[in-house]
Design a protein around this nucleic acid. Sequence first.
DNA 1: TAATTCAACTAACAACTGTTAGTTTACGTT
DNA 2: AACGTAAACTAACAGTTGTTAGTTGAATTA
Lengths: 189, 189
Amino acid sequence: MKQTPRKLEIITTASTLFKEKGYSAVTMRDIAKVMGIKAASLYNHIKNKEEILTFIIISLAEEFIEGLEQIKNSNTSCIDKLKQIVALHVDITSRNTNGMASLNNDWMHLKDELNHYLKLRVDYENSFRKIIKQGILKNEIKNINPDIMLFSVLSTLRSLYVWIPQKEDLNASQLASNLSEVLLKGINK
Amino acid sequence: MKQTPRKLEIITTASTLFKEKGYSAVTMRDIAKVMGIKAASLYNHIKNKEEILTFIIISLAEEFIEGLEQIKNSNTSCIDKLKQIVALHVDITSRNTNGMASLNNDWMHLKDELNHYLKLRVDYENSFRKIIKQGILKNEIKNINPDIMLFSVLSTLRSLYVWIPQKEDLNASQLASNLSEVLLKGINK
DNA sequence: TAATTCAACTAACAACTGTTAGTTTACGTT
DNA sequence: AACGTAAACTAACAGTTGTTAGTTGAATTA
């Protein structure tokens, strides 16, 4: 799946607008206007509006899947794996704050690739839960309902795209380590 | 602001659709079809589409503000106040999972009431942060960047609307206490 | 120089959007 | 029986939507 530079410009521009107003509220004319061209000209580079959304979402989802695959195979404790997952989210999100908005909020507007996306998401959550469950077995993690822990941690990580742009003073590794501390050990002294 | 029963039915129906596809992707004809009437008939009960969204968002936002006001004035430790905030979110969200989707994802489509909403949100976050900062001063809470802790906890609480409907086996108080445990003390043993 | 390709353009389409105006129907009150 | 009202209806509007077809000019290649 090679993309021309102009096509990537369209995707980048669209991402910004999708984050601001959501996929459905952004028109092809909106995207074209920002780029200084007419809406019809976009179709020299892309098949249709859906292709833009699909590219944004699927490429990010696959990046997460690949990252988690690495972490699963690393020979470390479960707690360390969780720290790596936090760092993975901080890393990918820092580089794609706009796209992450679509991944979180616009996936339901996929058509052709909806099932593909849903499979990737379920796979990701299952692998994540497996690490937590193993941590409980190995006595590294508290014996609370694993779904609640998964939900709590993953909700925070999925919301990073909102907070990272307004906290540019924090660098990535600093944010990742502070976040790991809070998620793993809580805020109570 | 008294609402007729039929108007509330429209708002409830719209909330469900807004959660599924987002405000922009839901048409007046979609809402009417679910109710078994024509789109034009909706206007016997509501002023326009925006009024539906405004009602959903502002009434929920005010419920949160009022709840937090109570908690601020309660004569307890900061940790206990945070537990009360968790319970507040679980309570309101359990009763309004659909509306919470709009509060989180559709607020940018407000027009007349956008500034009102933004003020309520900033006020809420400021009050929340104040409780965390006081907890740090009183040595109840770790001395980490309060914004990171606020972000982490609030992200989880704001995502509850996604998880509560798919975990109907958990009752509210059970969920609130488990969640408090995870958010306050972390998942690390 | 001629031929080809790229990436913009104009013009138009059919479908869909929120909304209004005017009409009809059913029902409770005088 | 007559009236008033609530809540549905039909028909239509003006504007917007994604998308297509065909054209143009500039740059690249033969």
